[in-house]
Design a protein around this nucleic acid. Structure first.
Length: 897
RNA sequence: GGGGCGGUAGCUCAGCUGGCUAGAGCGCUGCGUUCACAUCGCAGAAGUCGGGGGUUCAAGUCCCUCCCGCCCCACCA
């Protein structure tokens, strides 16, 4: 595509809609985001948290990816080889669910299609819709290295998954066994502990009588929150220290509704103080009971099908009933039999499937597990050694807690969409070989007989935890892996700290011997105006694409970054996008217009010249110094992941100091009112400072800054600030003299405008100003900028005197930066009004003054506070005192006592 | 049950290691449009920094305690 010449920028309203897509295309055409390993000397790498392939961009993505883009662009401008690797996650359950729902519309199930056809169908879906979110990321400006886009089910990543499975198996860290796992009866699969979300639920505690087998007049009472599981009871337990019930141990009860006999066993687990002191033991449906069962060699009786209906192990009357129907039926039957002693209300936390919200069923099941302790130990050690840093820091504690109490990870899923478990079983029961292999296995390696692959797939996170290196070609020792691993920063939402972040650390250390990243940035949650999480079901989400369309990507990015202070949530109003994103939109418009103004006065020479080689005036020195200060603040903020501070500093500099301050001051000079030399200095300064803040803002607002950068005379669309350089902070460029002079000048302007407003002086009217006893900084400013003052304060005459004119009616103000101003306005000054003003101001000063004096009279303060602090306090007191005295004189002089 | 976070202007929030007269944006009030921008400008009002106690020369900031929200983790049935 041909580079279009840069056109004029005429419109006073910034319209990003044409600019942003064109620029993005230009960047892509230049391959500006691609980094070759061979060229990367100082890589800065971010691996994107791969969004689910089913996902459409929401504000959470908008925020997270803006943050990453800001960091990547910043480091790219700083001269590093910044590489941001993008991609998507196959999201086992979520994606399978989407396609199953689609089938459902045609009245079909995945079983109707069969495994192979179903998986093919999912691939079709992925091929059609899977790129959606990738394209959306481009719209918001993400500078990912798209040539490296990966998918967790790509052949390469699949190979990594297999490699890891085999390695862990060979190391004895992967095992298969029958344990209680969290089962989702809707998704028909096992879940990990992390995938079961616990929510407080108001439930019931049913107290049920189990009669003694040999004495039906006696019974013991057990309490349960899940009465239907009684059908799977195989014992009743009591605490061995519970003396009142000691005689019962070894005897039997008859399980109601079934007639089965259950032994009474003694087990430490039972808390004699809770409930009745007896626990029904259901080893196949409760983790504690499972443990008790193993200790006592109890039968493990699974009473449910995968869909949560009761199976053949339940009495006939209940078979086929859903677990909750069965619960109601059983409770009713117990009541009829007179065995229901009482029902209490009971608050408890119940696990829900993180994908579909169904109540999870703890269920005995044959699954594959990863033993986590050996992986967690080095991951914990690395954190404790300070090699892994969280921002905000507090998440370190959360990480530490999880790592120390981590349980084994159930990795098999009874799904069809995902990485197939690389395990083959020999069909010959006599042989019993289990082959775990990197390559597909066709026949039994031991007996040569037929084999069958494990039907299950792996937890999605079993591929995600390898993301920082599987995306780079591992297990091959590629140049990419060597160059780009470890990555630098990981930015993500706190929700997936355990799912993903913690596991990536473990995998990184285990398989690459090195942490996958050094800094983890956990951003806040995007909420609506009422503070609720944004969610599909509440319909309170905001579509980032709509925001981009309405206000532009830059406006959205600026708004998000400035609203997201480190570690805090941010609120946006989905019903009023205009008010939510106004800040960013207005800022973009301000940038556009101040640039439009500047460009109207600049020539290519101005842009090319270094202002420091010219005869600079005070205002020029001032704004250059302020740019340096802003450079320091912005750089600091970005370096410390305090993005909102960087955003705010840049905003303030551009708006208040550059546009409202400098530009207003130099307008006459730019028009040539003070001669060629002065104009040149102003123009060169204007260009340099503008160039500087365009750079400072580029990571946050890449489009508008690039556009304006290319519009600067002497530049074209061939130019770009993508690769910097980033402005460097040079302490010598600060200029205390110029800064205090201009500050004094701005103080005068404010004070005059204040009085004008107080006395409702017609804005068009030019008035006289008398400056009384101006301090040196102000004198310096007046030498250079008296015209500026005259213009900004809208003055007729400006007079400087040593002593205040006596007896003349007018308005007074004492300046904070020293000196006083006097407006001789006999026609509008009302003596009473003036008196009120003076008295109010005197009051204010007097209380400040006595506070300062109080400190200085305090010997403890003088002795213990650092010298600078005391000195500062002294200066403050002196200045307050002077101002106070001056005001008092005014009051006296006017007979205003 | 364990751990964490938050309570600062009407609203949303900054205020990092204690130290200038506690800030910003929005909103509000008043005034203002030839001359980059009304998606603008100027000026202004508005805060017992959740309550109480303590440490300190000095506390929004550190400690204790209480109150009010929120979040995470947890196998007491």
């Amino acid at each position: 595509m041909s580079e279009s010449p840069v056109g004029p920028i005429l419109q006073s309203r910034y319209d990003p809609s044409g600019i942003e897509p064109a620029l993005y295309r230009r960047w892509l055409d230049r391959g500006a985001f691609h980094v070759e390993a061979s060229d990367a000397e100082d890589p800065y790498v971010i691996a994107i948290p791969p969004p689910n392939v089913t996902a459409a961009l929401h504000m959470g993505h908008g925020l997270n990816n803006t943050i990453q883009d800001v960091l990547v662009r910043f480091e790219r401008m700083r001269g590093r080889d910044a590489m941001w690797i993008p991609g998507t996650d196959h999201a086992g359950i979520a994606t399978q669910n989407v396609v199953e729902r689609q089938l459902q519309k045609d009245g079909l199930t995945r079983q109707d299609l069969g495994r192979e056809a179903f998986v093919e169908r999912v691939w079709e879906w992925v091929d059609t819709y899977g790129n959606t979110i990738i394209e959306q990321l481009k719209t918001i400006g993400c500078s990912c290295d798209w040539e490296r886009t990966r998918f967790t089910l790509d052949p390469g990543l699949s190979r990594a998954v297999r490699e890891v499975f085999v390695l862990l198996y060979e190391k004895g860290l992967i095992y298969r066994g029958n344990y209680i796992i969290n089962w989702c009866p809707r998704c028909h699969t096992a879940l990990s502990n992390e995938e079961a979300e616990h929510q407080e639920v108001e439930g019931r505690l049913w107290h049920i009588r189990y009669p003694l087998a040999d004495d039906s007049d006696r019974w013991i009472t057990v309490a349960t929150t899940r009465p239907e599981t009684m059908l799977g009871d195989t014992a009743v337990a009591v605490n061995p220290a519970d003396e009142s019930n000691a005689d019962l141990v070894g005897r039997e009860v008859e399980l109601p509704l079934t007639g089965r006999r259950l032994p009474i066993v003694a087990d430490e687990f039972v808390d004699p103080e809770f409930g009745s002191g007896f626990v029904k033991v259901t080893p196949a449906h409760d983790p504690n009971d499972f443990e008790i069962g193993r200790r006592h060699g109890l039968t493990e009786l699974n009473i449910m099908h995968g869909d949560g209906t009761l199976n053949e192990n339940a009495p006939e009357a209940y078979r086929g009933l859903d677990r909750f129907e069965a619960r109601d039926r059983i409770v009713a039957d117990l009541e009829n039999a007179g065995l229901l002693e009482k029902v209490d209300r009971h608050e408890h936390a119940v696990g829900h499937c993180y994908r579909c919200g169904t109540i999870v069923e703890p269920r005995l099941s044959l699954q594959w597990f990863v033993q986590m302790k050996p992986l967690a130990e080095p991951a914990l050690a690395a954190f404790r050694a300070g090699e892994l840093r969280f921002h905000p820091e507090r998440f370190g504690a959360t990480y530490e807690h999880w790592m120390t109490s981590v349980r084994d990870w159930c990795i098999s899923r009874q799904l069809w969409w995902g990485h197939r478990i690389p395990v083959w079983y020999c069909r010959d029961a006599g042989c019993g070989e289990i082959a775990v292999s990197r390559e597909d296995v066709d026949s039994c390696p031991t007996c040569g007989g037929q084999v069958e692959q494990d039907p299950d797939v792996l937890d999605t996170w079993f591929s995600s935890w390898l993301w920082p290196f599987s995306t780079l070609g591992w297990p091959d020792e590629t140049e990419d892996v060597r160059t780009f691993y470890p990555t630098s920063t990981l930015s993500t939402a706190p929700e997936i700290l355990f799912f993903w972040v913690a596991r990536m650390v473990m995998a990184g250390i285990e398989f690459r011997g090195e942490l996958p990243f050094t800094d983890v940035l956990l951003h806040g949650t995007v909420r609506d105006a009422q503070g609720r999480r944004m969610s599909k079901s509440l319909g309170n989400g905001i579509d980032p694409l709509q925001v981009v369309e309405m206000f532009g990507a830059d406006a959205m990015r600026y708004t998000l970054v400035s609203a997201a202070a480190l570690g805090t949530d941010l609120q946006l109003d989905h019903e009023d996008l205009e008010s939510s994103f106004r800040v960013g939109r207005n800022f973009a418009n301000k940038i556009w217009n101040v640039a439009r103004f500047a460009l109207g006065y600049l020539s290519a020479d101005d842009v090319a010249r270094d202002p420091r080689t010219l005869e600079l005036e005070l205002a020029d020195r001032w704004i250059l110094a302020r740019l340096s200060a802003a450079t320091r603040t912005v750089t600091d903020g970005l370096t410390k992941f305090r993005l909102h501070e960087a955003a705010e500093a840049a905003y303030h500099f551009v708006w208040s100091e550059f546009a409202a301050g400098y530009v207003e001051l130099v307008k006459p000079r730019l028009r040539g009112d003070r001669g060629e030399k002065s104009r040149d200095a102003a123009a060169a300064t204007l260009a340099t400072v503008m160039d500087g803040w365009l750079r400072l803002l580029h990571p946050i607002m890449p489009f508008i800054t690039e556009e304006l950068f290319c519009h600067m005379p002497g530049r074209s669309s061939e130019d770009s600030l993508l690769c910097g350089p980033w402005p460097e902070f040079v302490p010598d460029e600060l200029d205390a003299e110029a800064e205090s002079a201009i500050e004094a000048l701005r103080d005068v302007v404010s004070a005059v405008l204040n009085l004008r407003s107080e006395y409702s002086i017609d804005p068009g009217r030019r008035i006289d100003l008398v400056l009384v006893d101006p301090p040196p900084a102000l004198v310096a400013a007046l030498d250079a900028e008296s015209e500026g003052l005259t213009m900004l304060a809208r003055l007729e005459n400006l007079e400087t005197v040593i002593a205040s004119p006596e007896g003349e009616p007018g308005a007074h103000a004492v300046l904070q930066t020293g000196g006083e101003i006097f407006l001789p306005l006999r026609d509008v000054i009302d003596l009473d009004r003036e008196k009120q003003r003076l008295v109010a101001e005197l009051d204010r000063l007097s209380s400040l003054l006595s506070a300062a004096r109080g400190k200085l009279e305090n010997s403890g303060f003088l002795e213990r506070a650092p010298v600078e602090v005391v000195e500062r306090e002294r200066e403050k007191a002196m200045s307050l005192e002077q101002r106070y005295e001056r005001l008092l004189e005014k009051k006296a002089a006017f007979g205003l006592d």
